[in-house]
């Protein structure tokens, strides 16, 4: 790893850390509010995979926080740099596109996992939680963060304006995460929607992540790993090609 990579990674990390109230504390509060409301309404009525609803919900919320914040970090950093013009400082430097990609994605993963960690620390007191396979928890957190961080790079580069980025976030990322089994098991869905959910890569990441806690899941964690890993490979290749060609960054 070169000095270019570590500097860009450091800069990206420092950027969100300096506004940590907004980038870390706020999303933790949001996740806790979801938990309070849904568990209040549903905890006595619903059990999934023989797990109490609040306990089932916690890993979903943690993973949703990881995903959304990883996406938010790379995409918002890039669009801000583009709109204000300071992206030029990176473009003038001998930073290779591979290092550029790695730095943005890893900083996104770091923020995602940091937020997820705090969400877990705050919410784990609300319900009995087990940690059956901690390695799966870590693997899917990393994988999910990387996929969404990479998607954030694509969105941040593609969008010319903040409202375009907001559209990407509201019409693609939000539905994909909300309809991925954060709040429910897809086995409870009608078969059509169940089938459709299997086309959503985010479903596999949340399902695999939850397996790490309870040892039960809708599909095998290995299958989830394959789908998530495949998604990351395809997306990375796409993003790297975009960066190599200088799409929207170099005229």
């Amino acid at each position: 790893m070169s000095g270019e990579f570590s500097t860009l990674f450091y800069k990206e990390t420092l950027r969100f850390w300096k506004v940590g109230f907004q980038t870390v504390a706020a999303p933790v509060l949001t996740a806790v509010l979801y938990l309070l409301i849904f568990s209040h309404v549903l905890d006595n009525h619903v059990r999934i995979h023989d797990v109490q609803y609040t306990a089932f919900l916690i890993p979903g919320l943690v993973m949703m926080s990881v995903l959304q914040n990883a996406f938010a970090n790379s995409s918002s950093s890039l669009i801000q740099s583009k709109v204000t013009g300071n992206i030029v400082f990176v473009l003038l430097a001998p930073v290779s596109y591979q290092n550029f990609f790695l730095a943005y994605v890893l900083a996104a993963v770091l923020r995602g996992i940091l937020v997820g960690f705090f969400v877990l620390v705050v919410t784990m007191w609300f319900a009995p939680l087990s940690f059956v396979a901690p390695w799966w928890i870590l693997v899917f957190a990393l994988l999910g963060g990387a996929v969404l961080g990479s998607l954030g790079v694509v969105a941040g580069i593609w969008a010319d304006k903040f409202d375009q980025l907001a559209a990407f976030q509201n019409f693609l990322i939000m539905p994909l995460t909300f309809l991925s089994g954060v709040f429910y098991s897809i086995h409870s869905l009608p078969s059509f929607w169940q089938g459709l959910s299997h086309w959503n890569p985010i479903f596999y990441m949340i399902d695999g992540f939850r397996y790490g806690f309870f040892g039960v899941s809708d599909v095998s964690p290995w299958q989830s790993l394959a789908v998530g890993g495949g998604a990351l490979l395809v997306l990375s290749a796409f993003t790297l090609t975009m960066l190599e060609r200088g799409y929207k960054l170099r005229a």
């Binding site: 270019e4 860009l8 420092l14 506004v19 204000t84 400082f89 001998p94």
Partner: peptide, 19 residues
Amino acid sequence: VFDPFFTVRETLRIQSGYF
């Protein structure tokens, strides 16, 4: 153009690092 997140010295250190 400038990056509003950083101080002058941070800006220059980061720019050095890019190179």
